[in-house]
């Protein structure tokens, strides 16, 4: 198995290759405004680094957000188009799941500990979801709303929402907690997808469609304004 994983839901366009057992290579290009420019070259780079050909890819996993819409679409249409051209399946992974998996893998949270992932949703809001259990799984969410409305219930919060909204999501009193992983790393998204494909762990694959969580901003026009007084 050669799984190509990619994510553009957070500020980092990220790509990884996974052989079903372990991550072979991963890359992160940090510039949220340049996902469209960096993504395919990043795929090219991880294949080159591992000496694999594009035709060796057997499955694709893509982060379906939630995250800013334009970048999210770039990632998903890239994954879908690669999948069609290479004749392989494309699976969706909730991008917050990758952050949760990374928080556990890097020791930011403990095995079995319940915690919240919160990422920047712009417009003074965050995307959030609650995680816990062993094996780790998503308990509620994802949802979008103001940081102050996140029901953290005394839990640890990780993700880019933490430094943005320290009052609501920062470290609990008396604890030396950092914000954990801020942006998605495709290496962890690949691990989530590989486990789900093996039928192990608590993760579930999703259809490769964006989790927008918000409707398009569009207002129906009112009565036409007069041009004469």
């Amino acid at each position: 198995m050669l799984l190509l994983a990619l994510d553009t839901a957070t500020a980092t366009a990220t790509v990884a290759l996974h052989d079903g057992e372990r991550v072979l290579a991963s890359l992160r290009a940090a510039d949220a405004r340049k996902h469209a420019e960096n993504l395919v070259p990043a795929v090219q780079a991880v294949l080159a680094e591992t000496g694999r050909a594009r035709r060796d890819v057997t499955a694709i996993a893509a982060g379906v957000g939630p995250g800013p819409f334009t970048g999210l679409r770039v990632g998903l249409v890239t994954a879908l188009s690669l999948g069609m051209a290479l004749g392989v399946d494309v699976h969706g992974v909730c991008s917050l799941d990758a952050l949760a998996a990374e928080a556990l893998a890097t020791g930011a949270v403990a095995e079995g500990e319940e915690f919240v992932v919160a990422t920047d949703a712009r417009r003074r809001e965050v995307h959030s979801a609650r995680y816990g259990g062993s094996p780790l799984r998503r308990l509620t969410g994802p949802q979008v709303g103001p940081a102050a409305d996140v029901e953290r219930s005394g839990l640890r919060v990780v993700g880019s929402g933490v430094p943005l909204y320290p009052d609501a999501l920062g470290p609990r009193p008396g604890r030396a907690e950092d914000s954990g992983p801020l942006d998605v790393d495709a290496a962890h998204l690949a691990a989530v997808a590989a486990a789900a494909l093996r039928g192990e762990g608590g993760w579930q694959l999703l259809p490769p469609e964006p989790l927008y969580l918000r409707r398009p901003d569009a207002v129906e026009p009112g009565a036409r304004k007069r041009v004469t007084a």
Partner: peptide, 20 residues
């Protein structure tokens, strides 16, 4: 429209790369 152009452009890049 920027956000619209990005969809087709990303798709085209992926096709071009995958098909070499």
């Amino acid at each position: 429209l920027s956000t619209a152009v990005q969809v087709g452009l990303a798709s085209a890049k992926a096709f071009a790369f995958a098909l070499d």
